[in-house]
Amino acid sequence: MTIRVLVVDDSGFFRRRVSEILAQDPLIEVIDTAADGREAINKAKMLRPDVITMDIEMPVMDGISAVREIMKDTPTPVLMFSSLTHEGARATLEALEAGAMDFLPKRFEDIARSKEEAILQLQQRVKAIARRRPRLASRPASAPPPRPVSPAPLRPGRTEAPAAATERRSLPRRSGKSYQLLAIGTSTGGPVALQTVLTRLPANFPHPIVLVQHMPGTFTSAFAARLDGLCQIRVKEAEDGDALRPGHAYLAPGGRQMLFEGRPGSARLRIMDGNDKVNYKPSVDITFASAAKTYGGRVLAVVLTGMGADGRDGARLLKDQGASIWAQDEDTCVVYGMPQAVARAGIATESLPLPIIGEAIVNEMAG
């Protein structure tokens, strides 16, 4: 069965370009296009596409407003196109708040190293999010009250499990292990998933936290600031030389790699450009592998929603040292790729629904 796509952009050239790229895949059919958000809402109701690609800045109605309206009436997986600027980052986070599932840079040369790879990435993203029909947008499960902040919180478009399913799943039993680090890796669907998890951690969380989210370099500072305003813990974009402190989360900067140096208890972060041959910058595998060398088995590593298998090899190295590895379950993932890779390899000791992961972390590491 083909994936039916509605392409929305005020530029006729960009609509044709996206349509032509998607049409190259025999599993994708572009059923129509729209030139503004209002037209997109009407065509979404009439055509019921499987996926919508959406620009942010458009006349009549912008893409963020259109996503909000679509999620109210005809929830549909939405892939946003964004400029790689600070303002573009803020707007993209607002689009994810509104219910969009994923985003890509609007300049295709920013997606990948070659034209062919960029085309493949766009096709793969559309096919990946098409598998998940979003539910009506809702706020994450209740969390401790955040510190005052001006930006509105991200509200997941589909990451909460049905209430009954969540109620049936109890927290995993505490292992009794001693920990010194919490490490979380994620990709597609990660911004909302990270918010859901991190807002459940108390301000006095006893260990440092490192976060690896596949995201462009211009986005990570805005995303870290947004999380910092929502969470009881402190969140910052990681910098070279940062000393790891309890109750602080360090988000790997986009386009670079995050590693550790020193001894547990006094370790610092090293932020490096890394090898251009590595597919992901930042890479969950690289950060997890470095954590295994520095912290050994005193790590709880959590792999959340995302495409591909980044994190599997690093998680295996951590498990070989005695670390605990958890994965998000399939039902609550936007894309069950990275967690599935860890689970299928037999590395994960727990497969948990997103709404309880934060509470489970507190129970395991700070209970």
Rank of each mutant, 00 (worst) to 15 (best):
K177A: 14
R168L: 14
G157F: 09
S170K: 14
P156I: 00
Y179A: 07
R158Y: 11
G176Q: 03
E160M: 15
T166P: 01
A163V: 12
S170G: 13
G176I: 06
A163S: 12
R155A: 12
R173H: 13
A152D: 13
G176N: 04
A165V: 15
L171H: 08
A163G: 11
R158C: 14
K177I: 04
R168F: 04
A161Y: 02
L181V: 02
R169S: 05
A152P: 11
P172Y: 02
G176L: 04
A152M: 10
G157N: 10
T159N: 15
S170I: 01
G157Q: 07
R174G: 15
R173L: 11
R169I: 10
A152L: 13
S178A: 11
E167P: 01
E167D: 12
A164W: 01
R155W: 04
R155F: 07
S175Q: 14
Q180F: 00
Y179I: 02
P156Y: 04
S178Q: 14
A164F: 07
K177D: 08
P172I: 01
R168K: 15
L171V: 08
E160W: 03
E167G: 00
G157W: 08
R169M: 11
Q180R: 15
R169Q: 12
P156M: 03
L181H: 05
A165N: 11
R155I: 06
A161P: 08
